[in-house]
C-alpha cells in the first residue's frame, strides 16, 4: 500500500511540475515524471509476493511468477511516451528558435 501511495505522490509531483513551472523544459520533465509514475504503478499492480521474473525457462518452474502482462503493456506505453516526448522536445526547440525564450509567461500570443 505504501508503495502505491508513493507512486501517487510521484504522479502528483509531476502534475504539480506541469502546472506550476514556467520553463517549457521543466514542464516536459514534469510530464515525464508523472508518466513514469503511472508506468511504475502498472508494474506494481502485477507484482506478486516473492514472485520470480516471468521468463519461461527450461529448468526453472513456472509457478509463482509475477504477472507478465503489465510488463509488456508498460513497454508499449514507454514507447508511446518516447514518441510524444520527442515530439514535445522538438516543438520546444522550435519555440526557442522563434521566441528566443523558454519562459511560458513570455510565450502567450494566443489567448485561449
Amino acid at each position: 500500500m505504501t508503495l502505491y501511495l508513493l507512486c501517487l505522490l510521484l504522479f502528483c509531483l509531476g502534475i504539480y511540475c506541469v502546472l506550476r513551472k514556467r520553463n517549457i523544459i521543466k514542464i516536459i520533465v514534469g510530464l515525464i515524471i508523472s508518466e513514469y509514475a503511472v508506468n511504475l504503478f502498472f508494474i506494481l499492480i502485477g507484482y506478486r509476493m516473492q514472485g520470480r521474473s516471468p521468463i519461461f525457462d527450461q529448468k526453472a518452474d513456472i509457478l509463482n511468477m509475477v504477472d507478465p502482462l503489465p510488463q509488456a503493456l508498460v513497454l508499449t506505453s514507454i514507447v508511446i511516451g518516447v514518441a510524444s516526448m520527442a515530439l514535445l522536445i522538438a516543438i520546444a526547440m522550435r519555440i526557442y528558435e522563434k521566441y528566443g525564450t523558454f519562459d511560458i509567461t513570455q510565450i502567450k500570443e494566443l489567448r485561449g
Binding site: 510530464l31 508523472s34 519555440i95 494566443l110
Partner: peptide, 14 residues
C-alpha cells in the same frame, strides 16, 4: 502554430 501545438500536446498528454 508551435505555441498552440505545445499547449495542446501538454494538455493532451496529461
Amino acid at each position: 502554430e508551435l505555441e498552440a501545438a505545445f499547449k495542446y500536446a501538454v494538455m493532451s498528454t496529461v
